[in-house]
Structures are given as C-alpha cells and as structure tokens.
C-alpha cells in the first residue's frame, strides 16, 4: 500500500506529531505508515484522509505489485 501522507502533511503544514494527535495515534505510527512499514486499518485510513479533507483514494493507493496480506 502506497500513501501520500507526507505530501499532504506538507501541504497542510502539519508535523507527524500534529497529525498523530489529531487522529489519536502515536507519532511512531504515522512514521511507520509513511515509510510503508505498517498498513493502517480502514478506520485509521479514513480518519487520516478526513483530516486532510480528501478522499481515501487520494491518500492511499493499492500497490498491485506488493500484496499487503502478511501472515508473519
């Protein structure tokens, strides 16, 4: 799953800490999502996109080449 959180943060002049506080997660979680280490739940993805006032597809894009289902 690719995302443009960093771009939207820059556009909205938000730090990771600001965004984390706004949606009720830790800064480390925002960092992990931005770096593709963690794929957020639908609920969290919607909260992030709502914060930027855009549709979820604009922030998150499904990456066909890298399936995110991981049983490890």
């Amino acid at each position: 799953m690719k995302n443009k959180i960093k771009v939207f943060r820059a556009m909205n002049d938000l730090t990771q800490e600001d965004l984390a506080q706004a949606i009720g997660v830790t800064r480390q979680t925002i960092l992990a999502i931005e770096k593709g280490k963690y794929v957020p739940s639908l609920d969290l993805a919607f909260r992030i996109s709502r914060r930027f006032r855009v549709n979820i597809e604009e922030v998150f894009q499904y990456d066909e080449a890298a399936p995110t289902i991981d049983i490890d």
């Binding site: 990771q16 480390q28 960092l31 992990a32 931005e34 770096k35 280490k37 963690y38 490890d72």
Partner: peptide
C-alpha cells in the same frame, strides 16, 4: 522492529 518502532526520520 517489523512494524517500524525504531524507524527514524528526517523531521
């Protein structure tokens, strides 16, 4: 580590 607990960034 897998879910990015010790990731660092440029901020």
């Amino acid at each position: 580590r897998k879910y990015g607990d010790w990731e660092t960034d440029e901020e």
